[in-house]
Design a protein around this nucleic acid. Structure first.
Lengths: 222, 222
DNA sequence: TGCAGGTCGGGAAATTTGCCCGACCAAACT
DNA sequence: AGTTTGGTCGGGCAAATTTCCCGACCTGCA
């Protein structure tokens, strides 16, 4: 119960949990990481559920995670891990660098974001950064985010279309799917599909999270 | 002299432990409180566990605590503190003034309840009151409680039991039913049943309405 | 002209909900 | 002591919903 998590980093190096659904990729990067003598890969996982289990049993200093995995989203795994331990460091290691995905990752509680196209040195440096409690991202990710912040963009909601926004608004306001369908002259099925789509796009897993997001973005007033 | 504990107060002023998860808020009120020359902020804490630790090592005359903190409930911290020292004075300093929350705080052993919307003078006066062993609450809290005692079941939440409240809190915070079940060592089925029961009791139809209710009642902070 | 993407809904398996039930336990009442 | 009440916990099962796939339409845009 009272797990005093202190700085074991300095005494035993940085313990790492590797999460990626592709074993070869895991192996390859495991070797790269273990070449650093202050890194220890203490566990691996090939999906979100196993990642959470491994985190519980190993309590690694840093979780290096690919978020594009089959089944449950990697974002979910991040949220689960962070829900269990608010001090957990998760470094996302992704194939892509879309602003929306980066933002979703940080929104889920990630401490860093490095693309697989980056140099190993960049990943290694990022791991050291997040282990120290800092935030880190590779140069290409930073560039995308910087560009994206200059242009319009207000929130995680601008990845949603007009219709999706409206449905989210009514949903967060407390309307039933049937009511929304009636209001917008849609079939209930379509509203259900939108609901699913919105959750997928925003990376929210729970209706409650969706409502909070809507409120935070000023879509719904409390 | 027969007043052993009183003596320390008069000779060294009132020692205070500040508990709030928001550092800026802590800083701000620390400055306000230390402007009173008979006040001494001897420690700060940003969560329930640290609050208890700090109380043990500093034994302050008054604990000023925000109970809407992440992780373990502030109520639990109050109970822990009071269990260790039945003479402990805890002044709850909350964002909200729901009758249910106020009652829960006093039920847990709080000596006072002041909302963050109150004037600094009101907080200062309340601290002096509870330091003298009296009970104190800000005017708006008193009004809510008075109203609530005249009209039965004002808040929709006091028809809920301890367990139901906790489940609603976690649900509104965005947790999955599985996560809640894991946190509370229950079966998923039981959590589902509670979810249904809570909606039935509160008359909410939608999960979104439930979240809004929880936030409005100060159960969940956005 | 073609293609990307928002909108709209069907289909089907997997999961959850809605509502019922019984069991246990502690406190309060008779 | 016996009983009623009420909170907690979970099983069961039909009905509803979610999840994720798919195709179709329309519009803007290269």
């Amino acid at each position: 119960m009272t797990t005093a998590k202190m700085a074991t980093v300095t005494t035993r190096g940085i313990s790492i949990l590797l999460v990626d659904d592709h074993p070869v990729v895991r192996q390859g990067y495991r070797r790269v990481l273990e070449h650093q003598d202050d890194f220890r890969v203490v566990a691996e996982a090939d999906n979100a559920a196993n990642a959470y289990r491994a985190f519980k049993s190993h309590a690694p200093d840093v979780v290096v995670m690919d978020i594009s995995m089959p089944g449950a989203s990697g974002l979910e795994a991040i949220r689960n891990i962070r829900a269990r331990d608010a001090d957990a460091r998760v470094l996302v290691f992704s194939m892509h660098s879309e602003a929306a995905q980066v933002k979703a990752a940080f929104g889920a509680g990630a401490s860093g974001f490095v693309t697989k196209g980056s140099e190993p040195a960049e990943l290694i440096a990022a791991i050291r950064s997040v282990a120290r409690g800092e935030h880190a991202m590779s140069d290409d990710v930073a560039r995308v985010l910087a560009l994206e912040s200059l242009v319009p963009t207000k929130s995680a909601l601008d990845q949603l279309g007009e219709r999706e926004i409206e449905i989210l608004r009514q949903f967060a306001a407390g309307s039933t799917k049937e009511q929304i369908a009636a209001n917008l002259n849609l079939s209930t099925k379509t509203v259900q599909n939108y609901h699913y789509l919105i959750k997928a796009k925003t990376g929210m897993r729970t209706d409650a999270q969706l409502v909070r997001l809507a409120v935070e973005c000023g879509l719904a007033n409390l």
